[in-house]
Amino acid sequence: MEPRPTPAELREILNNDLRDAVSLTPSWTTNAYGNQYGWLRLPRAEDLPAAVAALAARKARLCTVSAYAEQRGDREKRRSIAYHFALDSVLLTLTVRIYDPDTLEALPVPSITPWFRNADWNEREFKEMFNIDIINHPNPRRLFLDERLDAGIMTGLIPFSSLLHSAGSKDLWERVMAEKAGLLPRPAREAGEIVEPAFTPVERTGPENTAAAAPPKIQESP
């Protein structure tokens, strides 16, 4: 078995390959375990195929693709896409900005599926979630979302879960508090004395609590 290249060697290989392909070299970070992470921002989406072709020639592996909005709550503009590659032990993230910096107009992004077959699902996913146009995708049908839903849903809709913060909404808590039927008797104890409270369901804490509680304000939905 031939020896595996060291992270430093892999860094050098990637630096050279990308310099040749797009005249840029990534910056590198390391974590507490000494793992190496390369970061490169491509100023233009047109440079993406050249960089990706170089990585494909080097037999790097595409880990995944992350599209995101550069600003929180920005529903339409300023999208970037981060392409994450692994070359043995090092990871490289190529980021492309896919909007015109002056007009903020969204730009299409070239597909990298011709070089990395596993980009297929990733590209279809960001197309439908972020409404990003892809040039030359071999199989541009929907991945997860039904055809009847609009693309760009990831930021376009307010999810039900965020409406409720996914759980205890104000409404639900109002019902819980309405059932509380008065506070528990206040402990008249000296500060300093710690008594473990035994858990008792509220309805069994005393006859005064079993009296009709204030009715919930909102009718239960059917």
Partner: peptide, 16 residues
Amino acid sequence: TAGHVHRGMESLAAKR
């Protein structure tokens, strides 16, 4: 064909 249990968890993660 996928998508039967898509829950938008990544979107939720950006709100917590």
